[in-house]
């Protein structure tokens, strides 16, 4: 039983090129290794307004993670205690431009995103990956080290941009680089189901 799941699991090493990104299909289970950068509401706005070069190297062909973690200080080091995904749709107005501006290959979050983002994923060869909401310790345990943090004083812990080195961070491909969205399919079906049940 477990072997079957294992066979379908794909390993993603970041940074990732466009060819490998386009090979990912809806429903693929992936384990991500490399650097990911947390970014939520304040950070998305800041990235668009400032077009900062500080984080550019981490994001090129890399991943952005919609997440506001719990972090604690241990001397000079930061320890990640909990780091599940936050709702992605709030970033819909920024996401397509950010994918283009920073050359992002993976957007990681929960709940899926809208049509503009789907279009950008297709145009610029990127994917949206769903992490499991609330599974915060599983994700925190995949963080090997905190490489850097930006905008901590201005935005506070949840909204800062944390640069995380992760190993085998589990996620599921739910929007691919060919314009397909599992979220769109499920929503349509749920509305149909509601009408049929009435």
């Amino acid at each position: 039983m477990n072997k079957k799941i294992e066979m379908k699991t794909k390993h993603i090493q970041l940074p990732m090129n466009k060819i490998n990104t386009r090979k990912l299909k809806l429903g693929d289970k992936v384990l991500i290794s490399g650097i990911i950068v947390t970014s939520r509401d304040m950070a998305h706005r800041w990235m668009m307004e400032e077009k900062s070069d500080i984080i550019r190297p981490y994001l090129k062909d890399g991943a952005i993670y919609h997440c506001g973690p719990i972090m604690v200080r241990d001397g000079e080091k930061w320890i990640c205690r909990a780091a599940g995904p936050t709702t992605s749709i709030r970033e819909e107005r920024y996401q397509s431009n950010i994918i283009q501006e920073y050359g992002i290959r993976c957007v990681i979050g929960k709940g899926g995103m809208g049509k503009r983002t789907a279009q950008a994923l297709r145009t610029f060869s990127a994917v949206y990956l769903s992490a499991v909401g609330g599974a915060a310790v599983i994700y925190a345990n995949s963080v090997q080290s905190v490489k850097a943090v930006y905008q901590l004083d201005a935005f506070g812990v949840p909204e800062a941009m944390w640069v995380l080195q992760v190993k085998d961070f589990p996620a599921i491909v739910t929007m691919d680089a060919n314009g397909n969205s599992l979220h769109e399919d499920i929503e349509k079906k749920s509305i149909q189901n509601a009408n049929q049940n009435q």
Partner: peptide, 27 residues
């Protein structure tokens, strides 16, 4: 082998590890 099983399995593993490690189960 379906996505729903995998999601629920991840959730339950997380519940277990959060309890054992005494870490917040959701951030």
């Amino acid at each position: 082998d379906n996505v729903a099983y995998s999601v629920l399995d991840t959730i339950l593993k997380n519940v277990d590890v959060a309890r054992k490690q005494q870490q917040p189960l959701c951030q």
